[in-house]
């Protein structure tokens, strides 16, 4: 190979990725912004945002943000517990790890249906309560009259499904912390909790930040569990985007919605980046 061609080889190898990135990531991003700010006739406008702004929009924003606010701290805590358990390296922890990782392979929609089978009127929750004698007639959980219950079932489904993602990011981060730090803490007489507080958590900060970013971004595209469990009774941003695209067939409104999701989620990412900065690591 001639020297000239050899020096071009690395660029040649990333070229497909770059082209693909431009066409299917950058282009839709730009086109989405453009579509959101234009009318079907191509005129510049803010009307799309005015049109989607209303009761259901506020509800969707509120619902999405409350889900994020509830799900993510719980998932983070649960993931940390699982990771710490795995890291005890007791007998059986590798099987435990595998079990905890299973949901990562499951579709949103499968998770939704699985929990539907539990919370539906004649579902397994009522069946079990009945078998144990707590209940005569089935309770209805999934009804638009009970937004709080809907909220909890959706949150539970998401916690069940996506804690694995957080855990699988946290665990390698935890394992990267060198044992010497803990030994040092031991020598100074730190208790378990003190070690968690002063060694583990501070050193995990960059990892936690990454997991928060990935998890929050995913939460903004959460869609199927909501649709399966609540239908239209519990609008979130992604399901509303879908509804507008399919039922109004107005791509400009949908694009405006999509843009809002992008903006909110980017705001979250930036917030995490700033607030969880560490001075000793990138």
């Amino acid at each position: 190979m001639s020297p000239k061609r050899q020096s071009l080889l690395p660029f040649f190898l990333i070229l497909p990725a770059v082209i693909f990135f431009l066409i299917f990531f950058a282009l839709p991003l730009i086109s989405g912004i453009q579509t959101a700010f234009t009318t079907p006739e191509g005129e510049l406008t803010l009307a799309n945002f005015e049109k989607i702004y209303g009761k259901s929009f506020i509800k969707a924003v509120f619902n999405t943000l409350s889900l994020v606010a509830i799900i993510i701290p719980i998932q983070l805590a649960l993931a940390l517990v699982i990771a710490l358990l795995v890291n005890t390296r007791l007998f059986g922890t590798s099987k435990f790890l595998f079990i905890c990782a299973i949901p990562i392979a499951l579709s949103e929609i499968v998770a939704g249906i699985i929990w539907l089978s539990i919370f539906t009127e004649k579902g397994y929750l009522n069946v079990m309560l009945h078998t144990l004698g707590f209940l005569k007639q089935p309770t209805i959980y999934l009804s638009y009259e009970k937004p709080a219950t809907l909220f909890m079932t959706i949150a539970l489904t998401e916690i069940w499904r996506a804690t694995a993602i957080v855990m699988l990011i946290i665990l390698p981060g935890l394992q990267m912390i060198h044992k010497d730090y803990f030994d040092t803490a031991d020598i100074f007489g730190a208790s378990r909790l003190q070690k968690l507080r002063y060694v583990t958590l501070p050193m995990l900060k960059p990892t936690i930040r990454t997991s928060l970013i990935i998890r929050t971004v995913l939460a903004f595209q959460m869609f199927a569990p909501v649709l399966v469990l609540a239908g239209r009774a519990f609008p979130v941003l992604a399901s509303e985007t879908y509804r507008i695209q399919f039922f109004t067939r107005n791509i400009h409104l949908a694009a405006a919605y999509a843009l809002i999701i992008m903006v909110i989620s980017t705001a979250f990412v930036l917030f995490y980046m700033r607030s969880l900065r560490t001075r000793w690591s990138a």
Partner: peptide, 28 residues
């Protein structure tokens, strides 16, 4: 040259809810 830019570009994809890009993609 541009290696770190490329890596950053790859990493930014996970900072966006990519599924949402489906909306503008409909038009494209």
């Amino acid at each position: 040259k541009g290696k770190s830019l490329f890596t950053v570009g790859v990493l930014t994809t996970r900072m966006f809810p990519i599924a949402i890009l489906a909306v503008p993609l409909v038009k494209i």
